[in-house]
């Protein structure tokens, strides 16, 4: 079954595997664009209105906070790019858990109580989601003897059981897959635009990617 177009570049670097289909390339370019935005853009200054009056003030992001968050946003962009292009199930799960950490990191330096609370709760979920995530990768290796998505896509290897696929999806969901994060919406209220957007972007990208992975293997 033709899932996302024929891969037009397969890069095998020892057992690391990168492959580009039209689909993954689209996602990669999108992640790349936003990572570049995160690198070159100054953070936005969120305007708040003083309640009951005409006054308003703009929240500023301090320089050291900006540096830290920019670093985390770039790391998050790189991790999601890796998750999008990799052709190895275990690398995929690793990149996804990296995305989980970076999402926490992006808002960790914001000194707003409810944002930190949300980030902490989200982090707990993300950390516990590594069990189904790594579990799925290990079970795939145990039942089929390979981790390469291209090998798994061929008819010759043993089929991956739906239970394992469900575990994989569950793990990705826990790490922050797009529609299933109540805590993340709270995190987005933190000021500093190009950085908080990376949280949302990475979760959408890993959602789009995990669909392809589940269909391919």
């Amino acid at each position: 079954m033709n899932i996302a177009g024929e891969p037009f570049l397969v890069l095998e670097f020892a057992d690391e595997l990168v492959y580009l289909t039209p689909y993954t390339t689209t996602l990669l370019l999108f992640a790349l664009a936003f990572t570049i935005f995160a690198i070159i853009s100054r953070p936005e200054r969120q305007v708040d209105i003083v309640f009951g009056g005409d006054a308003f003030y703009a929240k500023k992001t301090s320089l050291s906070e900006m540096r830290f968050r920019r670093f985390m946003a770039i790391a998050c962009g790189l991790a999601s790019m890796g998750a999008v292009v990799t052709g190895d199930i275990f690398n995929f799960t690793l990149f996804i858990s990296l995305v989980g950490i970076c999402n926490v990191g992006i808002v960790a330096a914001v000194k707003i109580r409810h944002v930190q609370e949300a980030a902490f709760q989200y982090g707990i979920v993300a950390l516990s989601a590594t069990v189904p995530l790594f579990g799925a990768a290990a079970l795939t290796a145990a039942t089929t003897g390979t981790l390469s998505m291209i090998e798994l896509g061929k008819a010759t290897t043993a089929a991956v059981s739906p239970v394992i696929k469900a575990l994989l999806v569950l793990g990705v969901m826990g790490e922050g897959m797009a529609p299933f994060y109540a805590a993340k919406a709270e995190m987005f209220r933190a000021p500093g635009a190009p950085y908080v957007i990376m949280c949302s972007l990475s979760s959408l990208l890993i959602f789009l990617r995990v669909i392809e992975v589940v269909l391919v293997i």
Binding site: N2, A4, I211
Partner: peptide, 23 residues
């Protein structure tokens, strides 16, 4: 082309809305 790409772009439009709003 692949319907999955259309679906992906449709999802990414969410980020566009988000970016418009937050920037």
């Amino acid at each position: 082309g692949s319907l999955l790409i259309i679906f992906g772009i449709y999802m990414l439009h969410k980020i566009v809305e988000h970016g418009f709003g937050l920037s």
